[in-house]
Computed example of a mutant assay.
Amino acid sequence: MIDIFLVPIALVVVLVMLHAWFGVGILKRGIIFTDLAIAQFAALGSAISLGYFHEEYFYILTLSFALLSAFLIAIASQREIKLEAFIGLLYVLGASGIMMVLSHSAEGMEHFKSLLASDILFTSPNDLYKSAIIYAFIALALWKILPKTKGFVRELLFFSLLALTVTSSVQLAGVLVVFVLLIAPAFVAISLELKKPLLYSFFFGWFFSIVAIIASYYFDLPTGYSIVFLGALLSSTIVLFSSKKNSAQN
């Protein structure tokens, strides 16, 4: 019985650690939907692979579209524009593109559902090992290379590494799971003004992800959506009831 939980729990442990780091960076930049836009573009690349190439060039197309969105966001971050609005447009561009590409596919809607949130309860050990290697290289680049850069190069590298992370994560977990793992843990830790926000982001992300995995198994619920639901519910509740009342409304 316990064996079925080992791989998905190991997966979310790795996912939370890397995504929470990016989440803190995204929140500090004030561009909340960056990861969602990049994830949608990655999903658009995978949809094109399915709709037009019978799933050939899957990883290349997924990564290419994710990097394209990262490049556009990096450029936009250096311009005097409403960055959040621009990122929102990228998100709807990717989302609508997916629906257009998959509209004539017999398996389109089923694939679209898996792109949003996959059933990670049945992740294979091989997928976990491959992703762990990719995430290890990304973490090494974040630790050794990113601190040595600045300006546009730093932003481009940050968003490119985020795109590479999202590319692997979308295939394993789905767009919505990626978003909640990036934002929810960091949002709670920063909102509570904890002294070590990244560390507490890890603990919170691990908590709701593991609880959701176990609950989805025993209650026969879709695992990915269970993680998204519980993460969004807990984080929004904690932040709402722990925040101070806006003094401007008094």
Rank of each mutant, 00 (worst) to 15 (best):
5 F>M: 12
7 V>P: 01
11 L>C: 09
12 V>I: 15
15 L>D: 13
15 L>P: 07
16 V>K: 05
16 V>Q: 06
16 V>L: 09
17 M>K: 09
17 M>R: 08
18 L>Q: 14
18 L>P: 13
19 H>R: 06
22 F>I: 11
24 V>L: 10
24 V>A: 08
25 G>W: 11
27 L>C: 09
30 G>W: 06
31 I>G: 05
31 I>V: 08
31 I>M: 09
36 L>W: 01
36 L>Q: 01
36 L>C: 00
38 I>R: 00
39 A>I: 11
45 G>V: 13
45 G>Q: 09
48 I>F: 13
49 S>E: 12
50 L>W: 05
59 Y>L: 15
61 L>T: 10
62 T>R: 03
63 L>I: 12
66 A>H: 09
68 L>M: 07
69 S>V: 15
70 A>N: 04
71 F>C: 02
71 F>G: 00
72 L>S: 05
74 A>I: 00
79 R>E: 00
81 I>V: 06
82 K>F: 03
83 L>P: 14
84 E>M: 13
88 G>Y: 07
95 A>M: 13
103 S>L: 06
104 H>A: 12
106 A>M: 03
106 A>L: 05
108 G>L: 02
112 F>Q: 05
113 K>R: 02
114 S>C: 03
116 L>I: 10
117 A>Y: 08
117 A>N: 05
118 S>I: 01
119 D>S: 04
124 S>C: 04
126 N>T: 06
127 D>H: 04
130 K>I: 07
137 F>Y: 06
139 A>W: 03
140 L>Q: 05
142 L>C: 12
151 G>A: 00
154 R>G: 11
154 R>E: 14
154 R>A: 13
155 E>W: 00
157 L>W: 00
162 L>A: 13
164 L>G: 15
166 V>Y: 07
167 T>C: 04
169 S>P: 01
170 V>P: 09
173 A>S: 12
175 V>L: 13
179 F>W: 06
179 F>P: 12
189 A>M: 07
192 L>Y: 08
193 E>Q: 10
194 L>D: 09
195 K>C: 07
196 K>E: 15
197 P>H: 02
199 L>S: 09
204 F>L: 11
204 F>G: 09
206 W>F: 14
206 W>N: 08
213 I>R: 11
220 D>Y: 00
221 L>Q: 09
222 P>D: 04
223 T>L: 03
224 G>A: 08
226 S>G: 14
226 S>I: 15
228 V>D: 05
229 F>P: 07
229 F>T: 15
232 A>D: 01
240 L>M: 10
243 S>R: 07
244 K>S: 13
247 S>T: 10
250 N>P: 05
